[in-house]
Amino acid sequence: MSTPYHPELNPEFNADQVSTSQTREDRQPVLQARGLVKTYGKVVGLDGVDLEVYPGEVLAVIGDNGAGKSTLIKALTGAVVPDAGELRLDGKVVSFKRPQDARDAGIETVYQTLAVAPALDIASNLYLGREERRPGVLGSVFRMLDKKGMKKRAGESVKRLGIQTIQDMGQAVETLSGGQRQAVAVARAAAFGSKLVVLDEPTAALGVKEGNLVLSMIEQLRDSGMPVILISHNMPHVWQVADRIHVQRLGRRAAVITPKTHTMGEGVAIMTGAVTVLPKDQEALVR
């Protein structure tokens, strides 16, 4: 169990605020991180971070710039190899050397820099890096792609997330709006992630309407049983969809709160270090 960064007591929070219905002792986390450390020379990115995600929940990760959010996410998804610490997926220790390792293990990530190829069409983007071949000799000898099948299944993936505005899977991604592109990226993650979907600032570049589209996609994902890690600067969005909120501060986990137990203001206060949370107040939420 980590110790809080500032050990002094703050009377504002107490264990009573934490409802007992949130205890998760009976459930095993899908992904669990223990004591992750990552340093860049003298700069400390992660200073012993713990994190756990449970089945069917949206865990939001918030934190100020430089708090280590990005590094944490990269460490969870194989984009960065932590110097120390342990990752467990479904209870088994795993180590990801590159993003492909995490992907092979069932963790799909939607990166902040939209990882879509603009000139390729939607179906090609959805299946980029995992193209499906035609059955029989055409596929095995001539390596022919099953374009029709991929297009059809891409349409189904997009529809499953409740996206109505994208109709033609043969459309180039660059002809889509920002929200639609994000929808393609999320649809790809949802279609191929078997354990966990990680979304890094999925609403950052979007307008209100498009942001709401992405939020409803996140809810769809969760309702289908897929755990989601959501990294966001947008507090209203976090409080709208998150089940629990991991507050990252100065390379550590400052607290885990929920939208029910804490207000946005309190969340920001923890994030900026204006208040701190004691470990005893955290036990119900963390485990």
């Binding site: 993003p99 820099t113 990882a115 879509v116 190829a117 603009p118 390729l120 980029l128 890096g129 390596r143």
Partner: peptide, 24 residues
């Protein structure tokens, strides 16, 4: 036009970073 290799050639030229993140 018909193989995964071809798609990957286009994707790498289009946006190499996106291609890398897609696992290519």
């Amino acid at each position: 036009s018909q193989t995964a290799w071809g798609r990957h050639v286009y994707a790498v030229g289009d946006d190499a970073e996106a291609a890398r993140l897609a696992g290519i």
